[in-house]
Amino acid sequence: MQYQLTESLEDYLLEIFIISQEKTNIRIKDIAKKRHVKLPSVVKALDELSKKEYIDHEKYGYVELTDYGMEKAKKLYDRHKIVYRFFYNILGLDEYSAEQAAHKIEHDLDKKTITIITKFTNFIENFPAEIRKNWNENFLYFTKTGKYKDKYFLEGGSIMTKAGEKSLGELKIRERGKIIRIKAGIGSLKSKLLDMGAVPGTIVKVDKKAPLGDPIDIQILGYHLTLRKDEAENIIIEEI
């Protein structure tokens, strides 16, 4: 059986689902409390939902989701969650505002928009944790100041350096550093650098520069390795 639900009914269904995650026996007053409405309105809504076989509901008894209702509620919940995550994780709104915003717009978005928001949210969230954190920090900084927090952000796209970190290319002759990581997105160069021993934790020292300033020569793992400055930019170190 397929019924189109009104916005308000969708909200009720979602609320029942959320409460059902927390407690086993759902009473009408729980729902009324959450939705900030009077009992009769809840009863009316529950009758509607029960008619459409989303819930089992004995008068003044417990409310229970049917399998069908459970499925529908889960879908609604996922949609709600993704919109919430978009506001909270990606745009960096606080929890309350994100929740409110999600409630407000989730019903009005068509399937295509929901899909693209879902994909975008997943896209950003799937970045390695460190990169995402940096991304967020920079965005937050940008919303406040209109500027990027650190200059590597633009150079490396979203793969950049945290404050206090430097690239190997910035070290002067005889300065030393400990490798933190190699930037992503540089293809086989990364594998090459790793294979040559440029793994996190390794100490490097800039030994000399070529007569024309580029390439540079570094000491690593007891040998001399030469690389161009723009290749050295991809090795993130902390100065020691």
Partner: peptide, 9 residues
């Protein structure tokens, strides 16, 4: 192609 080359002793 990247330089990344050893300067052997």
């Amino acid at each position: 192609s990247p330089l990344v080359m050893e300067l052997p002793p």
